[in-house]
């Protein structure tokens, strides 16, 4: 191999490494800051908080049985994840959380790379559900779900490479509530 070939090869590897590290960094960026929600803890009658980082997800993945089809799918999905963060607050009466609590999250979800792919407004149930994803190239690098009802606020943040078609397998796992993700399609990346 000539020096020129060596140099080209090194450059290619560097580019690959840069692209990869950029993707990882952007995946990490998919984590949403939600510490301001902690103040709701003393008002809520039911609280669920889950914080699983990459190491713990990989640890959990060790115990998934690849011979079981669903567990194998979950394991495959978990392998690409950097974190799962869940907050569920249930209140005895409406009005215990403020719209500013959600606005703070939404403002982060308006940053570049994030797209809202589902928005449901139910007047009958008085429930609003927004699903946002963060795209890196053609890949989904993060997902955030806000479900707001008068007496319940749920926020889910999944950080890492998410295959939306397999996302259903995560429902009910790792503290993630059952979600109606039918019909959720992977959108084109937004140019902003």
């Amino acid at each position: 191999m000539s020096k020129m070939e060596m140099a080209v090869r090194n450059i290619v590897w560097m580019i690959i490494l840069m692209v990869f590290s950029t993707a990882v960094a952007q995946a990490q960026d998919a984590r949403i800051e939600i510490s301001h929600l902690n103040r709701l803890a003393d008002k809520a009658s039911e609280i669920v908080e889950v914080e699983l980082d990459e190491k713990l997800l990989q640890l959990a993945a060790k115990f998934l049985n690849t011979k079981n089809p669903q567990e194998a799918r979950v394991k495959e999905l978990v392998t690409g994840l950097k974190g799962v963060y869940v907050r569920v607050f249930e209140f005895d009466k409406p009005g215990e959380y403020l719209s500013s609590d959600i606005d703070s999250i939404r403002s982060q979800l308006r940053s570049p790379g994030w797209s809202k792919i589902v928005g449901v407004r139910s007047r009958k149930e008085n429930e609003n559900v927004d699903v946002h994803i963060k795209m890196v190239g053609d890949a989904v690098a993060g997902l955030a779900i806000i479900a707001a009802q008068p007496q319940e606020l749920t926020f889910i943040n999944i950080v890492g490479m998410v295959d939306l078609e397999k996302l259903r397998d995560l429902e009910g796992q790792f503290g993630i509530p059952k979600l109606d993700l039918d019909g959720m399609a992977k959108p084109k990346p937004r140019n902003d």
């Binding site: 809520a44 009658s45 669920v48 908080e49 889950v50 914080e51 713990l56 503290g175």
Partner: peptide, 11 residues
């Protein structure tokens, strides 16, 4: 230590 789960049910 890292907090993983907190569940609180006043009800």
């Amino acid at each position: 230590w890292q907090p993983l789960v907190r569940v609180n049910s006043k009800r």
